[in-house]
Design a protein around this nucleic acid. Sequence first.
DNA 1: CTTCCACAGGAACCAGCGGACC
DNA 2: GGTCCGCTGGTTCCTGTGGAAG
Length: 394
Amino acid sequence: MPSFDEFIIESKIFKDRDVLSPHYIPDTLHFRDHQIRELMSSLAPALMGKKPRNIFIYGKTGTGKTCSVRQVTGKFLEKSGDRSRIIYINCRIHNKPYRVLLKVAKAVMEGFDKQGYGLPHIYERLLGWAGDGKQLIIVLDEIDMVKHLDELLYMLTRANDELEAGGISIIGISNRLLFKDDLDPRSKSSLYEREMVFPPYTAPQLQAILKQRAELGFHENAVTTGAISLAGAVAAQESGDARYALKILSRAAEMAEESKKDKLTDVEVKAARDLVELDLVKETIEKLPENHQVVLYAIARLSISGSKYRRLDEVQDGYLFSGEVYEEYTSICKKIKKQPKTARSYRSYLNDLEMLGLLTSVESGKGIRGHTKLIKLGHSPQELIRIVSKNLEG
DNA sequence: CTTCCACAGGAACCAGCGGACC
DNA sequence: GGTCCGCTGGTTCCTGTGGAAG
């Protein structure tokens, strides 16, 4: 009889895995002193009973936006009594004005956890709460995900005007700079009272961050300096994304562990780089609704067999017509005995997939078939087919 | 120059759902 | 248990576009 002891092995590399996870918030955040100070000075008025300005924060993923805000709000809560509150809302989940407001109301008012109230009712209750001189700061993370954002901003700014004492201010966080163009000018100017930018990390900065985490998360001498600098350099080149850098490092560590090594070197980092790429794709695909996956599958199959319209090769290799992809989609649906959705729905799936970076598309032009979209996959079709078909069966 | 093709994407609408309230 | 309310995930209808064909 084997003993479990032989499977429960002390890791030779990891000391604390959590430190490497993207949710971990370190005590000291490197290279963001400036932004943190600015945030604190912006919020300070709230502690003195005045309304702070609205702030808009922009930066790509993994540039420490959320981390910095979390840290500052944490400090803020220690200081503030019940006269001011900060509420953190992830707009990916609460992506409508109603939901945001409901979430705020729930957070602020005891026993306000019933759904089914109309928007005006919630609004009034909120006004009533802030009315006696309280400061409310709402952090909207991934603010670009909110639909009808204009409505929400308008409502909140109007609330401010109606309040004689107290106030409501907003910190908006986004990784899309362009999204402000879709806003109407009034909400734009109210949201952008103050603007902050989080630039991507440079290679040396990423290396320092990785070093800090490595000291906490790995055993002593388990990682070579070469490995850390390589991981930092790779991530800096790709995007300056700290999350990505950490992912490479921890994946490399897992690989070293699997091959029973006690040291993590640049060999593992190199190998991990490609895997991480694929991991990320896999994650996004797994979260996709069925129809999206079928569309993706259709595109992948056609990418292998190539477009029916040979003339396309003259223009650019590997692109497919929107129309033929839809045909493929419907025929796959029939094969798996599913009712295919309308072409209109299909077009919105396409847009969703493009937003997630799973495919790229360009408007036709240059002399092919009038007005259509040309579609191309962002990744190897064989891998996508593997992932999707495994997913749809299970 | 007009008409046609093959779409793009907005707007309005609808079915079905689930929780809160009476 | 009906109904009010809003959400989700579609559909239907529609107007817009830009190169190609006539």
